[in-house]
């Protein structure tokens, strides 16, 4: 195999939201949505990002694209420091990185036709200034995602959920990106349609050499599409490893609990297992301690760091 090329490297990225806002009020505290995350993505690779709702996966995805400004940390994209770019430089960079949103119902403007939605960025970035040229490119894109050119004149409400998500994908592809953040792209779709979209994303990746950061709470989907998987809990990565390694040899207790909770088809397992389900609180120790079945004293005072435990396998746990 040829040497994989580094596409994106994120170092110690943080995104804090102030708890109090207003004209005079000083922030009384911070919500640490993303709290020191580091990882990288190679060219043509899919990194899956899993975690429960509210763990910061979406915030992380958006911060990497600078749709949200990072509080701290460095984002290296094709050897450029993304976090240092000013607005104008960033705009020129935008075509290389795109995003596909979760909800195909609210992420498409209901007043615009599919053709306009897909072609808009082509016009904005001056790639296809002439109408006719743009129309042709839009038609190609529609066909590429499994729709037909006549759909260009349709409005979002005329499409089904799966077709809308295809428009979202076509829009992301329009500028020939290298990297796409897929933020729960199939979560709101039915099973039979979900499989179609996953296959489409895989085909496109192979054909266009795309890299994906694939965000999902569905481990089955992430497990299918990813090369590597990162597990996130309360703003921090707790484990990251190659897919096969992670599924056969999960180390972090949270990863284990998460895998254990996936409903397995055709397997009836009705044994009861104790997991302390409390709303976790943030403090200096390990974020997972309140729910951890194994926690020790050290976990309450010192947050574990992501450390190498095997080939390509990193875990943040004192007990690993």
């Amino acid at each position: 195999m040829e040497e994989p090329k580094l596409l994106l490297k994120v170092s110690n990225i943080k995104k804090y939201f102030p708890l109090e806002r207003g004209i005079f009020s000083k922030s009384s505290g911070w919500i640490k949505a993303v709290d020191g995350v580091s990882f990288d993505i190679q060219e043509g690779e899919t990194v899956g990002l899993v975690g429960e709702s509210g763990c910061g996966k979406t915030t992380l995805g958006r911060t990497i694209l600078r749709l949200l400004e990072p509080t701290e940390g460095e984002i290296l994209f094709q050897d450029r420091k993304l976090n240092r770019l000013n607005a104008e430089e960033l705009r020129k960079f935008r075509p290389k990185m795109q995003i596909i949103f979760q909800d195909p119902y609210s992420s498409l403007n209901p007043r615009m036709t599919a053709g306009y939605i897909i072609g808009e960025s082509l016009a904005v970035h001056g790639i296809a200034k002439k109408r006719k040229e743009r129309g042709e490119m839009v038609e190609n894109l529609l066909e590429r995602v499994g729709l037909s050119p006549r759909h260009a004149n349709w409005y979002p409400h005329e499409f089904s959920g799966g077709m809308r998500q295809r428009i979202g994908i076509a829009r992301a592809l329009a500028l020939k990106p290298k990297f796409i953040v897929c933020d729960e792209p199939v979560s709101s779709l039915d099973v039979s349609i979900q499989a179609q979209i996953i296959n489409l994303l895989k085909d496109l990746q192979e054909e266009l050499k795309l890299s994906y950061l694939f965000i999902s709470h569905d481990l089955r989907v992430v497990g299918h599409i990813s090369n590597r998987i990162a597990v996130m809990y309360l703003g921090k990565l707790v484990e990251i490893a190659d897919k096969e390694e992670l599924f056969t040899n999960p180390v972090h207790p949270y990863t284990k609990i998460l895998f254990d909770a996936i409903p397995k088809i055709g397997v009836m397992e009705r044994k009861k297992k104790e997991t302390k389900a409390q709303l976790p609180v943030s403090y200096n120790g390990c974020n997972f301690y309140p729910r951890c079945p194994k926690g020790v004293q050290k976990c309450t005072t010192e947050a574990p760091r992501l450390e190498k435990k095997g080939e390509n396998h990193f875990v943040a746990c004192h007990l690993a």
Binding site: S160, G162, M163, D190, V191, S192, I193, Q194, A195, Q196, I198, N199, K202, L219, R220, V221, G223, H224, I225, E244, F247, T248, F259, I262, I265
Partner: peptide, 21 residues
């Protein structure tokens, strides 16, 4: 049943049902 990705199984493409609801 075939459209659901199974962990540790079926690499490559998922089996799909063609068409829409």
């Amino acid at each position: 049943l075939n459209a659901i990705p199974q962990i540790g199984k079926n690499e490559g493409r998922l089996q799909t049902i063609p068409g829409q609801l």
